[in-house]
Nucleic acid binder design. Sequence first.
DNA 1: CTGAAAGCGCTTACAG
DNA 2: CTGAAAGCGCTTACAG
Lengths: 353, 353
Amino acid sequence: VIQQTVKNQDELARYLGVTRLTVHRALNGQPGVGQAKRQKIVQAARDLGYRPNAAARATVTGRFNAAALVLSTQSGRSTLFPGLVAGAADALAAHDMHLSIARLPDEKLTDEGYMPRVLREWTVDGLLINYNQEIPDRLVELVQRHRIPSIWINSKQPADCVYPDDFGGGLQATERLLALGHRRIAFLSFSRPQHYSGADRLGGYEQAMRAMGLTPLPVLRPARGNKLDATGDDLRPLTSEVLQGSERPTAVLTNGVREAVALMHAAAWLHLEVPRDLSIASFAESVEDDAVVPLSKMRITRTDLGRLAVKMLLEKWSCGLCRGRASPPCSRCLSRRGAVARCPVPAGAGRRT
Amino acid sequence: VIQQTVKNQDELARYLGVTRLTVHRALNGQPGVGQAKRQKIVQAARDLGYRPNAAARATVTGRFNAAALVLSTQSGRSTLFPGLVAGAADALAAHDMHLSIARLPDEKLTDEGYMPRVLREWTVDGLLINYNQEIPDRLVELVQRHRIPSIWINSKQPADCVYPDDFGGGLQATERLLALGHRRIAFLSFSRPQHYSGADRLGGYEQAMRAMGLTPLPVLRPARGNKLDATGDDLRPLTSEVLQGSERPTAVLTNGVREAVALMHAAAWLHLEVPRDLSIASFAESVEDDAVVPLSKMRITRTDLGRLAVKMLLEKWSCGLCRGRASPPCSRCLSRRGAVARCPVPAGAGRRT
DNA sequence: CTGAAAGCGCTTACAG
DNA sequence: CTGAAAGCGCTTACAG
C-alpha cells in the first residue's frame, strides 16, 4: 500500500492550491477561513497524513507542549509509580502534550544557574516534581523564585502539590475494622518515618480509634524500623510476639504490602487463619499486590494523582483571561482576544521580553 | 543573587564581540575557530548560562535528540519497570538526549497512516518499544517496513531487541541449588505462560537438572495459573500439598516474588524453616523485593537493560561512516567528513528528500 | 475573508 | 580561520 503523504504545510497548501497561511489558519481553528474551505483543508490534512512539526512550532511559540516528570537520581528519593506515569502521560496526551523523564542529581536541582534554564534544556513548559523524600530546601526555593511552573507530587508543600489522602485512608480502614467489631486494632509499619504518608496513615488510625473512645495501641515497628532492608528474619520475632498472648490484636492495619506479607507469614506460623482469627488491612498500590496478599486494602490510585497533577499544571499555564480569573491576561491573549481556546503562554516562563 | 544571563547565541555573540556563527562553531566543536577564542566562548557560555534552544536546533537538523519509551495503553501488556526507565533516561542524558513516554493504543500502533509520522508527532528520533505481551503482528511489520529506528524491550524479536537472560538465570539458580546438594528441586510459577521469560526460566531449570542426570519435576502451577488475580486462598492448597509427603522437594525455584511469598506462607504453616528445611530461590527485580522475602535471588538488572537498549538505538542512528562499518555513509556525513563525532541523521528517518 | 512579509533560534552550504 | 546569506517549518503581526 503506497500512500501519498505530505510533510509540511507548504506541500499541503500547494496540493490544494491555497496559501500556506490559509492552511495554518484552517488547521489551528483560527478565524479567517470559510467553512467549506476549512473543512476541505482539514480533511486533506488527515488524508495526506499531515502532522505539524512540533519542533518548528516550539521555536516560534516558545512553548514545547510538554511537561517533565522530574526524578532524583537517588532512586530512593523518587519512587516511580507506573500508574502515576500512565495518568500523567494520558492527561497530557489529551491536550496534545507529551511527558518527558528528567532524572536530575541534587547538584543540578539546587544549582542557581541551572534552574532558570531547566525548561528550555528539557524542552518542556513545566515540571511534575516527583521528589518525595529529603527534598532539598534549596530546590523548593529555586523553583518558587524562578517561577518555574511546577507541581509537587507525593509530597506536602504549601502549594502546588498533589498527594493521596493517606490520613483519610487510615481513618476509613480503621473505621471499617471497628465496624466489623474489632477493638484491639494495631498499626504496623516498617517504612521510613521521613515520608509523610506513614505519619498520616497512622494519624488517621489514631483519630478513628479515639473517636470510638479507644486508646490507640503502640505502633509496631521493628528494631531496625527505619531501614528499608529489614528482612523477614528480623521481622518474625516482632510480628510473632505481637500475635501471641491473650491481649493480641484481632486486627492489624499495615502501612504497606511488605508489612502485610510479613505479618501473614507470622500468622501462618502460629496457625492463625486470616481473616478468621486475624483481620489484616493494608495500603496497596496495584492490582498485582492483591495476588500476594488476600486482604482488605485501601487502594491508592496513582493514575488519578497523575491526572490531577497535570490538570493543576495546565491551570498554571493559562493566564487570567483564559481561565476567567483575576490575574492579568498575557500579551498574546490580549492580542487575539476571543479566538483563544487555551492560553498560548506558560505563566512565568517562556514569555519573550 | 542576580546573575547575568543570555538567552541565545546572538546575545552571547554580541556580548563577546564576535559573530553568531563563531559562537556556534565554538560551542559545537566545529573547526574554524582558534583555540584561545574557542575556550573564551565556551567559558562565557557557561558563565552566562547559555543553553541551546533544542527546538530550534531540531527544526533545522531534523533531529530531536530524544527517544520515546512506547507503552501500550493496556497496562498489562507493557510493564513499566522503574529501573528500566532510569537506565534508559541516564544513558540518553549521557548523550544530551531525552526520554519521552508515549502511551499508545493499538489502533494507532497498527495504523498504516500513523506509523510513518510517529517520530515527528512525538518529537523523537527513535522508539524503545516496551510492549511485552500479545504484540500485534502488524505493529512489528509496520515498524520494520517504515524503518522506524526501534529497539524492542523485554520481548524476543528476530532483531533489535533486548531482554534479560532468563534462561541463563534459571540455569544458574538451579545449578547453585544443585551445588548445595539439593536433588528434588521444583519449579513454581503463577505467571501467564504467554511471556517468554517464564518459559525460559523453566527451560534453564530443566537443562540444569538434565545436565545432572535428573528428571525435572512437573511444573507447579495453580489451577487458575494463567490468571494474574490468583489469590493466596487459591494457592495455599497447592503450595501446601507440594510441601507435604516424603517426596517433597527440598528446594524450589520460583518464577517471581509473588510465588516465593505464597510458598513461604505455606512453609510457615507447615513449620518448615527457610532455608533449613526448604531452600527457595527466586527471580526478583528490586532491592525492595528482598525485604519481603529473605531468599536467594537472581537479580534482574533492568537498569542495564535500559542502557543497552539505548546503546543499540544510538548505533542504529549512526550511518556506516560514523560507526566504521560497511553500510553507506549518509549524505550529511559525506559532506563534512572528518568533523563528525556522531552521525547527524537518524538512519531511515528524518532524512530530507 | 485573504495574502505578502518578517521573525523564532538555530544550522548549513558557499565564498572569501 | 572568518563571514554574509539562505534555509528549517512554523506563527504572528500588519495591510488590504
